[in-house]
Design a protein around this nucleic acid. Structure first.
Length: 881
RNA sequence: GGAGUCAUAGCUCAGCAGGGACGAGCGUUCCCCUCACACGGGAGAGGUCAUGGGUUCGAGCCCCAUUGGCUCUACCA
C-alpha cells in the first residue's frame, strides 16, 4: 500500500469509494448478538418523496455520530432507517401533478389515485435514501422500513382494533379543524395560529316583540351569523339581565333565537354579547352543548355557503362576508366597523384559514393514555435533553385534547372500520368481515377515511422491529436508546410515541430524547423555499466534503438551540479536515523508512512524548464522558483543540529535530508516539468525520481494515505523567515569552540567538537541560545555556520572566533600551494587578475561613509565583535604569 | 393571555459542576511562502459577560425585577 497522500485533502475523491466499501463489508448491519449489549436508534423517518435539507443533515449527523461511537465501543449498534408516507403532503403533490394533466383525483377513483401515488413514491422515494448516504449515514439499510409497508400497516391495524376494543378509539360528531382546500380534517397540532389584521363588525339584532330595541353583537366573522342559534351574555352582566330568555331575530334568515346566559362570555370584551354559532366555532360548540342549541351547518366542504344560507348560497365565505356587511349597512343594522387584529388558525401545509366544522370523525381518547407518558418524563425514566423541553412537553400533556385521527384522504392507512350496507352496524376488524354480525347481511363497506400520518409514526420504535410479532429483534433492541429530533415535533411525534410505547409494549420507546434546533441562514431566518435562502447540503458535500458539513453542523451549538449556517464556518471545518490530513501526511512521510514497533518501553519516551501521551489520555477520558452524555459539540471541540494546538502546533514541532536526525536515539520513540496519538485522535474524530479518518487510517496501517469497526480508545493510567506535563508547560511558557519578545523587538525570524535560562531551581534547570534540542527549534534559538546565575550575560540583553526562571537573549545591536524598559514596566503593571487580586482574596478573613482549602492553597501558590516574578522584573528594571 | 428562550470580543456562538473574563471560528493588525499544511505558522489588538437589585467569602453561571429580540402555546367572540 502506498503511504502517500495528496497535499490537499480532496473529499470527493474518496467519499463514495469508502461508503461503498462500508456497505460491502456490512459494517452498518447490526444483528441480535447476546455477547454484545444492544444500542438502538430509530431514524425520524423523512418524507418518502422529500429532499434532503439542512434540518435532516443535522438530525442524521447527530445520530450517525452517536451510532458510530457506540459501534466502536463494542455495542451491537443498530440505526434503523426508514421513510414516512406523509399522507397530506404526498397526496397534495400527486393531486397537483394530476391537475397539470387535467385530471381530478375523483376522475380516476381511489384505486387509480393510489396507483398513481405508489408510482410517484417509487419514482422519487429512493432519492432521500441516496441523499442520506451522501452524508455518510451508517444506517442498517438491510432493515429499511416504510410506514406504509406491510409490517407497519399490520401494526397500525392491530393498534386501531385494540384501542377501539378498549374504548379508547371512538367515532363522534364533533367540531374539528377543516381545511377547505385540502378538504380534510386536521388535528389541533396541525393548526398554526397566525396574527391576521381583521375587523370587528358591530351588528344589531332586533329583539322580538320589542319594536325598535336591539342587542348589539361584535364579531370577526359576520358570515357565520347564518348559523347562529343563540346570542349569549354573561349572567352577571347587569346591562343585559332583562333580556335573558327573550328572543332576537337573525338578519337575512329571519330565525328567532334565544338570548342565553353563559359565563363563557366576557363582560368587558366587545359589546358583552356574543352570537353563538355552534357549528362553526369550537367555543360556541361547547356553549351549544351546554344549552342544547341546534347546530346549523351553513357551509360546504370548500367553505362556500350552503343551502342554509338562503340567498348567499354558493358564495365563498369571504365573498359572502363582504356582501353581507354591505347589506347589513344598507339595512341600518351595521353599527360600526373596528380594526381588529386577531389570531387565525391556518393549515400548516397549505396555509389556508381553517374552518371549524362539525363532522363525524374518529378520535383517540387521550386522558388515560397520556398518564404513563407524563409520569415517565416526570420521573426521568425518559430523559429529555435539554431538560427545559420538559416544560414544553408538560404544557401539551396538561392541556391534552382527544386526537382526531381520521383524514379525508386516500393516501394512507385506511381505517379498518366497516359499515353494514343494510343496518349500518359498525364493525372494527383487521380483516374485511364476511357478514354483518348484527343482521347477517353479506356486504359491508370500509370507512372511506385514512389515518393521520402520525398515527403510524407513533408506533415507529416498535413497528419497525417487527411488532405485533414477537421478533427476536424486538426483544433485543427495544426499548431504543436515544431519539434524536427537532423540538418542533414534540407534540406531533415524541409524545405520541411515548404513550404508544407504554400502551402497546408496556415499556418506554426510548431512554433519552436528544433535541436539536432549527438550522437557520446566516441572518437567522428560517431556510425556506419562498425566501430562496435554503442551502442544499448536497452542494456543500460536493464542494467541501461530508466531513466538513458534519463538523459545521455539530460544533458551536448546544442541544435544543437553533443555529446559523454560513459558509465561513464550513470553510473552517474543511480547513480542519485538511489539517488532520496534512499532519497525517507528515507522520507517514517520516514513518516510511522505519518499522514502528507495536509497543514501546516507557523508559524510551522523552519529556515531550510523555506530555502529549498524558494529554491524549486525558482527552480520551473527557471526550468519552462528553459523548456518553450526548454533549457532541463539546466533545469534538476538545478533539479539535487537541489535534490542532497541542498535537500539531506543539508536539510535532517539538519532535522535528529528532526525526531529522538519524543519530537521535529517541527517534523511534517519537515515531511511535506520533503514530499512537494520531491513531487515537483519528478514532475520536471518526464519528464526526468518518471519511477523512477512514482514508488516513487505512493508509497509515494495514492491521485493521477499517477504523469504523476498530476499538474506541480507552483511558490508560499507565500513560499519566503529571510531572512531565508540568515541565513541558514550563517550556511552552518560555517559548511563548521568547517569541513575544522577539516580535515586539522586531527581531527577524531568521535571526538566531543564544538563549540563556537563569534559574536557581534544580528541577527547572533539569527540564531545560534535557529539552535543549526542541527548545532551540521552537524558540528560534541557536543555542540554549542553562545556568544558576547571571554571569557572563551582557547588561543590555533582553529578558523575559517565567515562573522560577528568567530567560535572557543578548540581541545587543538590536535592542532599544527605552523600549525594553517600557516592555518591562508593562509586565510589572500586569503583575501588580494580579498581586492585588490575590492579596485581596487572601487578606479577606471570610474568604480564608469559608473557602475550600484547595482553593486557598491554589491562591497562595499564585501569590508566591507572582511575588517571585515581580522580584525578577524589578531587578531587571533596576539594572537597566 | 400563558410559557419558554436568548442578550458574553467587530460578526456568529461555546462556556459542562458558581472560584482568576475562560474561550472558539471568522474578521482585524504586524511578521513569516521555515523541506506536513498559506485550507498554513508566529505575535498582537479587541469584552463594565443587556440594565437594576439580591443570595454568597466569591456570580457570565443561582434568585427577583426591568428592557430588547426570538420561539412555542392559547377559544377572547
Amino acid at each position: 500500500m502506498s503511504k502517500n497522500l495528496e497535499k490537499t485533502y480532496s473529499p470527493s475523491d474518496i467519499e463514495d469509494r469508502l461508503y461503498q466499501k462500508w456497505i460491502e463489508k456490512k459494517y452498518f448491519h447490526a444483528e441480535v448478538d447476546e455477547n454484545k449489549k444492544p444500542f438502538t436508534i430509530v431514524i425520524p423517518p423523512p418524507n418518502v418523496t422529500g429532499r434532503l435539507h439542512m434540518g435532516h443533515a443535522l438530525d442524521e449527523t447527530m445520530q450517525d455520530i452517536i451510532i458510530r461511537f457506540k459501534r466502536m465501543q463494542g455495542y451491537s449498534a443498530l440505526w434503523l432507517p426508514g421513510t414516512d408516507h406523509a399522507s397530506i403532503s404526498t397526496e397534495v403533490k400527486v393531486i397537483e401533478k394530476l391537475k397539470k394533466q387535467g385530471i381530478d383525483k375523483k376522475d380516476i377513483g381511489r384505486e387509480g389515485f393510489l396507483k398513481e401515488t405508489w408510482d410517484w413514491t417509487h419514482e422519487y422515494g429512493g432519492a432521500i435514501v441516496e441523499q442520506l448516504k451522501k452524508l455518510g449515514s451508517s444506517c442498517d439499510w438491510d432493515r429499511l422500513r416504510f410506514t406504509l409497508d406491510e409490517g407497519c400497516s399490520k401494526a397500525v391495524e392491530e393498534v386501531f382494533v385494540k384501542l377501539y376494543e378498549k374504548g379508547l378509539i371512538y367515532k363522534g360528531s364533533r367540531i374539528i379543524n377543516w381545511c377547505p382546500v385540502c378538504k380534510t380534517s386536521i388535528s389541533d397540532a396541525e393548526v398554526e395560529h397566525e396574527e391576521h389584521a381583521g375587523h370587528f363588525w358591530h351588528i344589531k339584532y332586533p329583539i322580538v316583540g320589542e319594536e325598535g330595541r336591539f342587542v348589539q353583537i361584535a364579531t370577526t366573522r359576520p358570515e357565520t351569523l347564518l348559523g347562529d342559534t343563540a346570542v349569549a351574555v354573561n349572567p352577571e352582566d347587569e346591562r343585559y339581565t332583562d333580556i335573558i330568555g327573550k328572543t332576537v331575530m337573525v338578519p337575512f334568515v329571519n330565525r328567532e333565537i334565544p338570548v342565553i346566559a353563559d359565563s363563557y362570555v366576557d363582560k368587558e370584551f366587545g359589546t358583552g354579547v356574543v352570537k353563538i354559532t355552534p357549528a362553526h366555532d369550537p367555543n360556541d360548540f361547547e356553549v351549544g352543548k351546554r344549552h342544547n342549541l341546534p347546530e346549523l351547518n351553513v357551509m360546504n366542504d370548500d367553505a362556500t355557503i350552503n343551502a342554509m344560507g338562503g340567498k348567499f348560497e354558493g358564495m365563498d365565505r369571504y365573498e359572502a362576508r363582504k356582501q353581507m356587511v354591505a347589506e347589513l349597512d344598507e339595512m341600518g343594522l351595521l353599527v360600526k366597523v373596528e380594526d381588529h387584529s386577531h389570531n387565525v388558525g391556518t393549515h400548516d401545509r397549505c396555509k389556508t384559514v381553517v374552518e371549524p366544522l362539525i363532522k363525524p370523525q374518529w378520535f383517540v381518547k387521550m386522558d388515560e393514555l397520556i398518564k404513563p407518558a407524563v409520569e415517565a418524563v416526570k420521573s426521568k425514566e425518559i430523559e429529555l435533553i435539554p431538560e427545559r423541553m420538559e416544560k414544553t412537553y408538560f404544557n401539551w400533556t396538561d392541556n391534552i385534547r382527544d386526537w382526531c385521527i381520521s383524514r379525508q384522504l386516500w393516501w394512507g392507512h385506511r381505517i379498518p372500520a366497516y359499515y353494514c350496507d343494510k343496518c349500518s352496524e359498525v364493525v372494527v376488524s383487521k380483516e374485511q368481515p364476511e357478514t354483518c354480525p348484527k343482521c347477517g347481511h353479506n356486504h359491508l363497506t370500509q370507512d372511506e377515511d385514512t389515518l393521520d400520518t402520525w398515527f403510524s409514526s407513533a408506533l415507529w420504535p416498535f413497528s419497525t422491529l417487527g411488532w405485533p410479532d414477537n421478533t427476536k429483534e424486538l426483544e433485543y433492541f427495544y426499548p431504543t436508546d436515544v431519539l434524536v429530533t427537532g423540538y418542533d415535533i414534540i407534540f406531533f411525534w415524541v409524545i405520541r410515541m411515548i404513550f404508544s410505547g407504554f400502551e402497546h409494549m408496556g415499556e418506554k420507546p426510548f431512554k433519552t430524547v436528544l433535541f436539536h434546533g432549527l438550522v437557520r441562514d446566516s441572518q437567522g431566518r428560517k431556510m425556506s423555499k419562498s425566501l430562496g435562502n435554503g442551502i442544499d447540503p448536497l452542494e456543500i458535500i460536493a464542494e467541501y466534503g461530508a466531513d466538513a458539513l458534519r463538523l459545521t453542523l455539530i460544533t458551536g451549538n448546544a442541544p435544543g438551540n437553533d443555529m446559523r449556517f454560513y459558509m465561513e464556518r464550513v470553510e473552517a471545518s474543511r480547513n480542519f479536515a485538511n489539517k488532520v490530513w496534512n499532519a497525517s501526511r507528515f507522520i507517514m512521510m517520516n514513518m516510511e523508512k522505519a518499522e514502528i514497533p507495536e509497543t514501546i518501553d516507557l523508559s524510551e519516551l522523552t519529556l515531550a512524548d510523555k506530555w502529549i501521551l498524558s494529554k491524549k489520555n486525558a482527552l480520551v477520558k473527557e471526550v468519552t464522558e462528553n459523548m456518553e452524555k450526548y454533549d457532541l459539540g463539546i466533545a469534538v471541540q476538545k478533539v479539535y483543540d487537541f489535534v490542532w494546538e497541542e498535537f500539531c502546533d506543539w508536539y510535532i514541532e517539538m519532535v522535528k529535530p529528532r526525526l531529522y536526525n538519524d543519530e537521535d536515539t529517541t527517534k523511534m520513540a517519537a515515531l511511535w508516539t506520533l503514530k499512537t496519538v494520531l491513531i487515537d485522535s483519528l478514532k475520536l474524530l471518526h464519528p464526526y468525520m468518518p471519511f477523512v479518518t477512514e482514508e488516513i487510517f487505512c493508509t497509515l496501517q494495514d492491521k485493521e481494515e477499517s477504523i469504523m469497526v476498530s476499538e474506541w480508545p480507552v483511558y490508560d493510567e499507565a500513560f499519566n505523567f503529571n510531572t512531565d506535563e508540568e515541565a513541558v508547560e514550563l517550556i511552552k511558557a518560555a517559548v511563548k515569552s521568547i517569541r513575544n519578545v522577539r516580535a515586539e523587538m522586531n527581531v527577524p525570524p531568521s535571526k538566531k540567538a543564544t538563549v540563556i535560562v537563569v534559574t536557581e531551581d534544580d528541577a527547572v534547570a533539569q527540564t531545560f537541560n534535557t529539552s535543549k534540542v526542541f527548545f532551540a527549534t521552537l524558540g528560534y534559538a541557536s543555542e540554549v545555556i542553562v545556568q544558576s546565575d547571571k554571569e557572563g550575560i551582557s547588561q543590555d540583553a533582553v529578558s523575559t520572566v517565567i515562573p522560577n526562571a528568567t530567560v535572557y537573549m543578548p540581541f545587543a545591536e538590536l535592542v532599544d533600551i527605552e523600549k525594553e524598559i517600557e516592555r518591562l514596566q508593562k509586565e510589572k503593571a500586569r503583575l501588580e494587578g494580579e498581586l492585588k487580586r490575590v492579596n485581596g482574596m487572601l487578606n479577606n478573613e471570610r474568604f480564608m475561613s469559608k473557602a475550600p482549602e484547595a482553593k486557598v492553597a491554589e491562591e497562595r501558590a499564585k501569590l508566591e509565583n507572582y511575588t517571585n516574578m515581580m522580584a525578577q522584573v524589578e531587578e531587571r528594571l533596576q539594572q537597566l535604569s
